[in-house]
């Protein structure tokens, strides 16, 4: 099975080289855990490797995300956008069909191979009830796999530590789940992550700390929490 590197040092090693191609992976975490940065790094590093990507933003304006990322990291995201290697797309937030149209157009017309949806939690607003949401989510993830894209979808969680983790129906449907934490240690917080689930491949079961520096996210494999 072909693996797609996420472009996050340390995490790709935890996954034995990356995530299986055409899989849908959830990146779950509380506020400030680095979900959006994770998604942008996946696309930016992919663009540098010659794989076009699309960032579908359901919450923040994509222009603001680009500004924040340009300020926080040493990446040249705007250059990749200018070249057409990175599409930043805003969605009418209460219309599921429009969102799928954007994804489909990005993939079929612009030959995008990597997609980030930020955040799937907002998708719930498109549906009347949990049953419709589950059906819509399943259709979406299945569709993405069928058109040969590898997808990262972020999920907002109300917790920041592992002990408080609660799983929703999204985690059961997706092919993979990566959890991001912001754990208290003495008088500060430490960012950490674990791979909770990844169908089709073996993966590390340990929790590792990670840092967000000027070059992006970086998992510190030499430390185990």
């Amino acid at each position: 099975m072909k693996k797609i590197p996420l472009g996050i040092p340390g995490l790709d090693e935890m996954l034995g080289g990356g995530v299986p191609e055409n899989h849908s992976i959830l990146v779950c975490g509380g506020p400030g855990t680095g979900k959006t940065s994770f998604g942008m790094q996946y696309l930016y590093k992919g663009a540098l490797m010659g794989e076009k990507g699309a960032f579908i933003s359901l919450e923040q304006k994509s222009k603001r995300i680009v500004e924040d990322v340009q300020n926080a990291f040493s990446w040249n995201v705007e250059e990749e956008i200018e070249k057409g290697n990175l599409l930043m797309l805003d969605v009418d937030r209460y219309n599921f069909q429009n969102m799928i149209d954007l994804v489909q157009s990005s993939v079929m017309h612009h030959k995008v191979k990597r997609v980030v949806i930020d955040t799937i939690t907002m998708l719930r607003l498109f549906f009347r009830d949990d049953y419709e949401f589950r059906k819509g989510l399943f259709n979406l993830l299945d569709f993405l796999s069928s058109i040969n894209v590898t997808t990262i979808a972020t999920v907002e969680k109300p917790y920041s530590v592992r002990e408080e983790a609660v799983f929703g129906l999204e985690e059961f449907i997706a092919d993979g789940v990566i959890m991001l934490y912001n754990m208290p240690k003495k008088n500060q917080r430490i960012r950490a992550l674990e791979v909770l689930k990844m169908r089709g491949t073996d993966h590390s079961k340990s929790i590792y700390p990670f840092q967000i520096a000027s070059d992006g996210l970086n998992v510190l494999l030499e430390e185990v929490l």
Binding site: L87, L89, D90, D92, Q97, N98, D101, L102, S105, H110
Partner: peptide
């Protein structure tokens, strides 16, 4: 026409 993807049609 507009060279932009963030177009929606309902």
């Amino acid at each position: 026409f507009k060279h932009m993807e963030s177009i929606t049609a309902n």
